[in-house]
Design a protein around this nucleic acid. Sequence first.
DNA 1: ATTTGCATGTAATCTGTTACATGATTCA
DNA 2: TGAATCATGTAACAGATTACATGCAAAT
Lengths: 178, 178
Amino acid sequence: MRTLKYALLGLLNQQSMTGYQLMKHFETTLREFWSANHSQIYPELKRLTEEGMIEYEIEISGTVLEKKLYTITKAGRESFLEWLSCDAPIGDTPKDVFRLRVFYSSSLPEHERLELLENHLVRHQARLNHLKNNQKKFDCIPDKSTNEFGDYLVLMGAIMREEMTCEWIKKCIDLCKL
Amino acid sequence: MRTLKYALLGLLNQQSMTGYQLMKHFETTLREFWSANHSQIYPELKRLTEEGMIEYEIEISGTVLEKKLYTITKAGRESFLEWLSCDAPIGDTPKDVFRLRVFYSSSLPEHERLELLENHLVRHQARLNHLKNNQKKFDCIPDKSTNEFGDYLVLMGAIMREEMTCEWIKKCIDLCKL
DNA sequence: ATTTGCATGTAATCTGTTACATGATTCA
DNA sequence: TGAATCATGTAACAGATTACATGCAAAT
């Protein structure tokens, strides 16, 4: 499906960047819905260059360090917009190890089952707090024509997801304690 | 991480089964949090047999058709229970192509953005209805010591997840229409 | 000087999907 | 007798992770 291709093109469509900066975006902006490490990004950038989707200029940082500043091409932008506007069917539900554990948790002694649930609850609550903190950076809802609007929507989605997860685990704990 | 291994051991810990029956479980019971197709299952069963986690007896169906009925061994059960009770850190947020699209949706003309969101909303609403229908099969909350209790918890989680997703998309639509 | 971060790449391995391949059983 | 389902496997490929490998720049 080449999703990484489009994730990269989408970022470069917003702004020209180096591979390193792209990597940082996966650790921050895209964190809540996509990930990729540098060992996957650099080969893909090479491939996209060969395919004419992107091109780069070498910049010198300091005296010798070379970095490649990638820019999206016309062909790249077209490919990206085609992917974005093409209607994709709803995918498989994502795999979730924690839910798999909960599914099998009746094989666990009561206190271990509760431990499993409670440990996870505190972690999700911490993540939720972290996300809510991020949301404070928006003092108002960004204009819908800006890139920040997309940021805002997915952050809102991430918060709702964590809230739902916390609620679910709490319900599980309650049912286990009955 | 060998998660498929533990997913299979967990099912065989509940009941001896053939590879085909295991496959069916991934299409039904585990559908909302794990998946695997037969081309992944059969080699893994072979490996687990070699590792002494499971063993099989050949049964004859009809006159010639051989099927392998797999049973978990003591070593398999121990390995499964160790995995289940061992505390695992919270994983990476799962990848989500739809959220990636929403993130980039400011590059789309207004009507296409709304189309993207509304198409997805109806699909998630359909999935939600389907799940709520499944829940009707439980006329009461199963006893927490039974396997059905795990089924109930994850089904509840799937419903909450779909409800949250629908709410999120609705909010996105509202914000786009402002 | 030393540590942290910037910067780029490859190799080996693991996990998962799609396609290839075959054949029996059951039900209409 | 034909279609759907049961039943089991392999091969090729795609996608992703972990480990290997290197070296500069900036800040302390």
